[in-house]
Amino acid sequence: MANMKIKAKLKKEVIQVKVMAKHDMLTYDQAKKKGTDANFITHISATCNGKVVYDASTSQFWSKNPQFKFKFKGGAKGDMVEITWTDLLKNTVTESKKIK
């Protein structure tokens, strides 16, 4: 079902990560109109070498198919960045990507 695209790049000791997650992010209003239940990502976290490098609690006001960027220090080329999101229905998706 759901999926995400990740890009992770090392630049001057800082790793830049770009993520595009696939999710409808239905707000309560939108869901009412469609006659379905609201569902949106409620938590996103990223880890690198077992350390949490990104941790966001989110609301329904992120855009559909949310895209986000963040930076962190303390990783090297070839390390894996692992990103997990959880939505309102407790679905979780985890994807990982090597740092370039």
Binding site: F61, K64, Q67, K69, F72
Partner: peptide
Amino acid sequence: GIVDYTLKIK
């Protein structure tokens, strides 16, 4: 951590 976040919102 570095505070440099970009996200798309509604």
